[in-house]
Write a protein that binds this DNA or RNA. Structure first.
Lengths: 186, 186
DNA sequence: TGTATTTTTTACCATAGGGTAAATTTATTC
DNA sequence: GAATAAATTTACCCTATGGTAAAAAATACA
């Protein structure tokens, strides 16, 4: 949804898992579970088979800031930790029961060895993700909070059934109270 | 600087250009030149051999919003246009005399055909770029304009010799007047 | 069905940053 | 080096959003 979709469908991924003996790990988490915490190494890509998740971090005052939301068939990871071995500052939270497929960097390398074309696919995923983030910065720089809110409703109406308004407010870069006021004035 | 560095050095790129007969195009632009305009297709990667450039777009009121700055040995492009064939909304401006090496998507494909490993390099470039953008969104959501300004000075002191304060203000997401006020209060 | 808990809204005042316009400083040009 | 243009600062008032705290509504629970 807010990160980019993997161009690879679930069935192919499951097929490759068997075919190349990747031993990918499955993980089921319940609504409300926090399946990765800040401070824990994030050395996997989390491919969401099913469900809905939120990625957030804490600001200096300890407030949760929603960084992005992720729907099924997309990937979440903590890029800082996965790519750079830096300390992970992100929390991954399941907003509904969620099925995950974990891919370690070693497994990813192996997969790409067998299917070099996949490297291209991942290159595109990363490029798309950069585009999404780029657009978001543009939106912050040119739109008011109200305009961003209205666009979010328009582009992701389902989000409002799954996430709390406080999650959405921090995703939009405002407080819960401000979002409430904006909603009132519409 | 604000996009990500190419892991490939200039000399290698020039070597490959000859070796694989890529026919990469060179382009020299003068300080102040706008070498790509909104509305023009951006179907190249612009590798900056030397110089310093600014990428900006116009908001609805016609104000220039600096989207990022680019130093030598990094790549600029309009992802929307290069990857998606969407209409380009970005302007590329040389803030000093700049030497560019243009790489079309066909040339990129050819290069990757000869050197498949490069696909990995570009995958990493895109991932790094996404990380830079991610960090920037976090910074917008957790820091005041003053804090962002101080961090920019600390991380990119040279920028202040090359860019105008109005460029930097819109990059930080504030008006020139606000930046001026912030500078006064320090 | 009533109680506890969580989420959302409301109200108050405080403040960072915006908008307009003019003054000042700095850079450019003839 | 005076004249012009461009960049930056300053000053004014205004508005969107923040912070705190409490009320109201919704949800979960027992």
């Amino acid at each position: 949804m807010f990160s980019s979709k993997l161009y690879i469908d679930i069935n192919k991924l499951i097929k490759w898992n068997i075919e190349f003996d990747l031993k990918l790990t499955n993980k089921s988490v319940k609504k409300g579970d926090i399946f990765l915490k800040a401070g824990q190494r994030c050395d996997h890509l989390y491919y969401i088979l099913n469900g809905f998740t939120r990625v957030y971090y804490l600001d200096l005052a300890g407030n949760e800031i929603t960084h992005w939301f992720c729907t099924k068939e997309s990937i979440i990871t903590s890029p800082f930790s996965f790519l750079k071995q830096e300390k992970n500052i992100l929390f991954f939270e399941a907003l509904e029961d969620t099925e995950l497929l974990l891919i370690s960097s070693a497994q990813l390398e192996k997969l790409i060895q067998y299917l070099p074309k996949l490297s291209e696919a991942f290159r595109h995923i990363n490029a798309e993700f950069a585009m999404v983030l780029s657009r978001r910065i543009m939106s912050i720089h040119t739109e008011t909070a109200e305009e961003r809110y209205l666009r979010l409703i328009k582009e992701h109406p389902l989000l409002f059934q799954k996430a709390k308004l406080s999650h959405i407010a921090s995703f939009l870069g405002i407080t819960q109270q401000s979002l409430s006021r904006i909603r009132k004035n519409l």
